[in-house]
Amino acid sequence: MKFEAIFRVVAKILIPLIVLFAFYVHFHGDFSPGGGFQAGVMIAAAAILYAVVFGVDEAQSILSQRAVAFLAPFGVLLYAAVGLCALLSGKNFLDYTVLAHHSKHAHHIGILLIEIGVIITVSCTMIAIFYAFVDRSR
């Protein structure tokens, strides 16, 4: 899939901005709309745009199918691990107060950790779905 120069140049400018905005949506989720899921689909959209413009092989040399298939369950496990941390410390599942001494701090850290789990799973699952479809088309 080779496209004209304008498309490549515009994509080169846009993709970093999309990823930057995705991380803004993710880490600013405490104060503004959005969170792990929104950021995850945005990163996936950026990766898919990259694959469409520069070719799927180019994209897979950066983020291989194996890596994507490994990271997607890793996100869910990270999320569950935060819950297990609380469980092993004698609190309820996903009770963040065990993560830091100050309760508000603990909630911030807890939400950040689980959102990182969500962003990894969502973005990698979306990219994996895209890879699966592309593989079939070849």
């Binding site: 989720g29 709309p33 996100g75 819950g83 911030h108 939400i111 689980i114 969502v122």
Partner: peptide, 23 residues
């Protein structure tokens, strides 16, 4: 929690079990 965005606190804290299921 000191977090003004209630959507985030509902998804990430009050109902984090649901979000785990969703993920």
């Amino acid at each position: 929690m000191g977090i003004p965005n209630v959507v985030t606190t509902v998804l990430g804290n009050f109902r984090s079990f649901d979000t785990l299921g969703e993920t």
